[in-house]
C-alpha cells in the first residue's frame, strides 16, 4: 500500500483542484486569470520579449547594455499585479540618488564669476529651481515620454484613461527612468552611470536640461 503524505508533491498531483480563473473586473475572492493579470491595459504581455524591451535596449545601445532580466525589472512598477514580479523600487532608489548627485556636481562644475565661490565651484546655483528640477520627477517623466521609453511599462493605475500626471504615468515613468540609471550603475559602475546621464540624458535631442529650462522658465518669468 502506498501512503501519500498530505502536502507532499505526490499528494498535490493526486489531489489537484480545478480552480476557476476569473477574467474581467476584479471580484473579491476570485483568482484572476494570469493571462489577463500579466497583460497591461495596452495589451503588452509581461515577458522578456524583444517587443517589450526594444525601446530601452535601443536607448541604451551596446555601450550601456543591461541584462534582459534587469531590463524587464526596470519596466515593472510595484503596482503591477500586486508586486508579484520583480519590480524597480531598489533600482530606482539607486538611480535617483545617483541622478541627484550627478546634477549637483554638474551645475557646479563650470567656470564662474561669482567671487563667493568655494574653490572655483559656484554653490549659489544649488538652491535654484533649475538645479533642483534637473533630476525632478516631472523632468524625468517628460524625458521618458519624449524618448518613447515609457511606451511599454508594466504598471496599474486606478485610471489609465486619465492624464499624464493624474493617472500616475508621470510618476511611474520618472521611477522607470531612475531605475534605468540605477540599472546602468549596478551593471557597469558609478562612473559609467554618470557618463550615461551626461551622454544620453543631457546630450540627445529634447535633453533633460531643455525640458527643465522650459519647465522652470515660466516660473521665473512670473516672479
Amino acid at each position: 500500500m502506498t501512503i501519500i503524505r498530505i502536502g507532499s508533491p505526490q499528494a498535490s498531483r493526486f489531489l489537484a483542484r480545478s480552480i476557476y480563473l476569473h477574467k474581467g473586473p476584479r471580484v473579491t475572492g476570485l483568482k484572476k486569470d494570469p493571462q489577463e493579470a500579466f497583460t497591461t491595459n495596452t495589451g503588452y504581455k509581461y515577458e522578456k520579449s524583444e517587443n517589450n524591451l526594444k525601446y530601452i535596449k535601443g536607448f541604451l545601445q551596446d555601450k550601456y547594455a543591461i541584462s534582459d532580466d534587469l531590463a524587464l525589472q526596470v519596466l515593472t512598477h510595484k503596482s503591477f499585479n500586486n508586486g508579484v514580479m520583480p519590480y524597480n523600487e531598489k533600482l530606482s532608489a539607486m538611480g535617483s540618488k545617483l541622478a541627484n548627485l550627478f546634477f549637483a556636481k554638474y551645475v557646479t562644475e563650470g567656470s564662474t564669476n561669482n567671487e563667493n565661490n568655494v574653490n572655483g565651484k559656484n554653490l549659489d546655483v544649488l538652491g535654484s529651481p533649475i538645479a533642483k528640477e534637473l533630476s525632478g520627477r516631472m523632468t524625468m517623466g517628460l524625458f521618458a515620454r519624449s524618448n518613447e521609453l515609457n511606451k511599454v511599462m508594466f504598471w496599474n493605475s486606478y485610471g489609465h484613461g486619465l492624464g499624464f500626471e493624474t493617472s500616475g504615468e508621470m510618476k511611474v515613468s520618472a521611477q522607470m527612468m531612475y531605475a534605468l540609471i540605477g540599472a546602468v550603475a549596478f551593471s557597469h559602475g558609478k562612473e559609467v552611470g554618470e557618463q550615461f546621464i551626461r551622454e544620453k540624458l543631457l546630450g540627445g535631442r529634447a535633453s533633460v536640461e531643455d525640458i527643465t529650462v522650459r519647465l522652470v522658465s515660466g516660473e521665473t518669468s512670473s516672479n
Partner: peptide, 9 residues
C-alpha cells in the same frame, strides 16, 4: 537660467 556660473545670491 542655465548659465550656472552666473548665479549669485
Amino acid at each position: 537660467i542655465n548659465d550656472y556660473g552666473s548665479y549669485k545670491n
